[in-house]
Design a protein around this nucleic acid. Sequence first.
DNA 1: CGGTGACTTGACCTCTGTCAAGAGAAGTGG
DNA 2: CCACTTCTCTTGACAGAGGTCAAGTCACCG
Lengths: 244, 244
Amino acid sequence: MDLLFKRLAWGDRLAQEERNQIVGSVSRVQSFGPGETIVPADTRVDFSSVLLKGLSARQKVLKGGNRQITAFHLAGDFCDLHTYVLKTLPDSVVAMSECEVAAIPHAQLDKIVRDSYHLTRLLWASTLIDASIFRQWVVSIGRRSADARLAHLFCELFLRIRMIGLTKDLTYPFPATQTDLADALGMSLVHTNKTLAKLRRAGLVTFVQRTVTIHDWDKLQNLAEFNPEYLHSEVKSAISSQAV
Amino acid sequence: MDLLFKRLAWGDRLAQEERNQIVGSVSRVQSFGPGETIVPADTRVDFSSVLLKGLSARQKVLKGGNRQITAFHLAGDFCDLHTYVLKTLPDSVVAMSECEVAAIPHAQLDKIVRDSYHLTRLLWASTLIDASIFRQWVVSIGRRSADARLAHLFCELFLRIRMIGLTKDLTYPFPATQTDLADALGMSLVHTNKTLAKLRRAGLVTFVQRTVTIHDWDKLQNLAEFNPEYLHSEVKSAISSQAV
DNA sequence: CGGTGACTTGACCTCTGTCAAGAGAAGTGG
DNA sequence: CCACTTCTCTTGACAGAGGTCAAGTCACCG
C-alpha cells in the first residue's frame, strides 16, 4: 500500500488521516497468476483495483488475434480508476506476473471524493498522468523507429520503477516476455527480438530473465529522444548522476 | 458554449446554475487561424482552453521533424483541461482551422471543483474519455492496417461530430489536410493519399474539400472493427438506422 | 501570371512482418 | 531419472506493407 501512497502523493505528503481513509476503503485483496484476467473488458464493475505487487497490463485483442497492450501497471498503480467514473472499461487488465491486487469499492471512492478535495485532485492527477503516458505511446508507436521505440519504453519503465524504489542502480525487474513487449510496441515478436539484440550489441541495454539493465543511459535516452517531462514525476532530477 | 455543455453533460442534464457557473468562469475568448499555436508545450499556464468553434489538434514534433498528432479537439472539447491539475502539458495544441477558444482560469476551475461534486465528476469524466480515445489510437496505430486505421478514425470522428450536431446525414466537416491525417495515423502522406483513394474506390468513404462523406457505414465499421463503446457516449444507439 | 500549398501518381527501396526451424530451460508424469 | 511437452528466445530466408523521392496537376491568391 505504501507504493500507492508514493505514487499518489506525487511530491506532496499524504496526511496520516488520508492514508487511513484509503487503507480503510479496501474491501479485499486478491492474487492473480500470470495470464489471468484482473478486470474483464466491457463489464460493469463496482470497484477499482490497485496493484500492490507485480506487473499487469491493459490490452485489447483484435479479431485477427492481434493484441495491443495499451499500458503497463506497476505496483502502486490503479489499474482501472476510471471505471469509478465511467463504469466500464473497453479493454481488459491482465496479470503479467504474480500479482496482488486490492479492490476499492466505488462507493468508498465516492466518499473520498465528496470528502476530500485534496485526494480528489491526486486521484484525478493519477489518471491524467496515465493519459499523458498514452499520448507518449501514440508518439512512439506512430513515429519512432523500432530501436527508438524500445529504448523509449525502457527509459520510461526505468523512471517509473525507480519512483517506486524497485530499481537497483540501472537494473530493474520487468516480468514480461518478448511477446508482451512486442505487443506493447506494436511490433512483431521476431523484429522485437532482433532489435533487442541490436541494442544489446550496441551496449545500450539488455533484457534477459525478466530483468532490464541499462548500460548506457545517455545513449539510450538520446536514441529514444526521451524527455521525462511527460511522466510528471517531481523526482525526475539527477538521473544521469545516478546513471553514471 | 452550448457544445461544451452538450459534451460535458454526457447524458445527464446540466442545471442552469451549473451552466451559469461555467459561463461565468470564462475570462476571455480568442481566435486562432490555421497553424497557430493555441497552447504551447512545456509552458506553465494558469487557465484551460475550451474550443468553441473549429478543429484543433494536440501534437508533438520529434527531432527529425516528424510530427505525431495525438488528439483532435472538436468544438465543445477542452483542449487542455489537464493543465488545471498538472500545470504543464508536454505537447502543444495547434489550430487546424479557424478556431475560437474560451479561456477558463484555473482559479475558477478550482472554485468549481471545490463547490460542485457533480461538475467535478463531469470534468474528470471528460478527461477520462479523452484517455480512452488515446488508448484506442494506440491500438489503431499499433495493430491496424492502413485502411483499417483510416476507417477507424473516420468512424470515430463521425460519432464525435454527430454528438455535437455537426453531421448532416453521413457527411461531416473535417477541416484538416491529408498531411494532418497522416500525422495523426502515424503514416506517410503518400501512403495516406493512396489508402484514401483505395477507400474511395471501394465506395466506403470520401474525404474531399475538408469534408468526409461515409458511403457505406456498415462496411466501414466492419473494416475498422469499430466499437463505439470506448467513446462512452450514451448517444451511441441507433447508428445504423441513421446510417441506412 | 508567377507562387504557394494541397493533392496525385509512379518508381523504387527498406523496414518490418511472416514463415519456419531449432535451441534451451523448465515443468510434468511415468 | 528420463522422455516429453511447452514456453521463450533466437536466427535465417523471404515477402510485402508502407516509406521516400520525384514530378506533375490543380486551385487559390496576391
